[in-house]
Write a protein that binds this DNA or RNA. Structure first.
Length: 254
DNA sequence: ATGGCGGTGTAACACCGA
């Protein structure tokens, strides 16, 4: 069984990429972030025609998340019940026996901004909610765009990023707090190539120069971690025409 | 130091992302 996550940066623009990628990578579950579209404009028929069940929570212009699955989807929750939020950044559901929590964690902009305060409050509320969710659902996967590079080895140029959002100690502490809910970063369970990232800026030919960050993650509770045999970042669709700036992350469970 | 690029909304540029 394969679980994947991908920030598509506009599903309207990236639908052909998603369909092509799913054809080549028929994963069981795919979490999407940054749909940037209202629910009325969600390409439901195209996704269903590709053989997927789907649930989604969108809004105009920003944010928006979805869960696609080859298996029936039940018990859908939109947003964190502990954190009233105008942004559509969380959708959770049960499929194939797994509680899938799809997140688009706030960017944070800069450490002295109101958006950073929002990010940290959002992360604390996520932790508090997941504490209960993990107890209720022992087989839980927290997947999405975290906008956090957990360690310096997840950053192309740590010196250049110092003092910026995504790499700060408060954010990294929040990431460790999630791991402390007895979850494993699937990517780090295995030997990995050095300098492998999941996001590269559109500017300055950052992808060709591999100037990236690893900010998209799959965290697995212990029972799922025990089943996990591989976790990869697929850089292939980042090379396609008009790509998302993020690459999919894929975990394989036995 | 600033803006690079790309998407959205809207119809020339502002806002946002990371």
């Amino acid at each position: 069984m394969k679980l994947a996550t991908w920030n598509v940066n506009s599903l309207k623009v990236r639908l052909p990429h998603v369909l092509k990628w799913l054809e080549e990578n028929p994963v069981d579950v795919l979490c999407l972030q940054e749909l940037k579209t209202i629910d009325e404009k969600f390409p439901l028929a195209d996704i269903q025609a590709a053989g997927y069940h789907v649930v989604f929570s969108g809004q105009k212009t920003y944010n928006g998340v979805a869960i696609l699955s080859r298996h029936p989807i039940t018990d859908v929750v939109k947003n964190n019940p502990l954190f009233p939020d105008d942004h559509q950044r969380i959708i959770a559901a049960t499929t194939a026996g797994v509680r899938v929590v799809c997140v688009y964690i706030p960017n944070g902009q800069s450490l002295d901004s109101d958006k950073f305060t929002y990010k940290m409050q959002w992360l604390k509320a996520l932790h508090d909610w997941l504490k209960d969710e993990c107890a209720t659902h022992p087989q839980l996967a927290l997947m999405g765009d975290y906008n956090i590079a957990p360690e310096d080895r997840d950053v192309c140029d740590p010196a250049a990023w110092e003092g910026q959002t995504h790499v700060s100690e408060p954010e990294r502490n929040a990431f460790r707090d999630l791991l402390a809910l007895n979850m494993k970063d699937a990517f780090r369970m295995f030997e990995q190539p050095e300098k492998l990232y999941s996001w590269w800026d559109y500017r300055q030919m950052a992808f060709r120069r591999n100037m990236g960050l690893r900010i998209d993650h799959i965290l697995l509770t212990q029972p799922l971690a025990e089943r996990c045999v591989e976790c990869v970042i697929d850089k292939v669709p980042r090379k396609w025409e008009q790509p998302s700036d993020h690459a999919p992350v894929v975990a394989t469970l036995k």
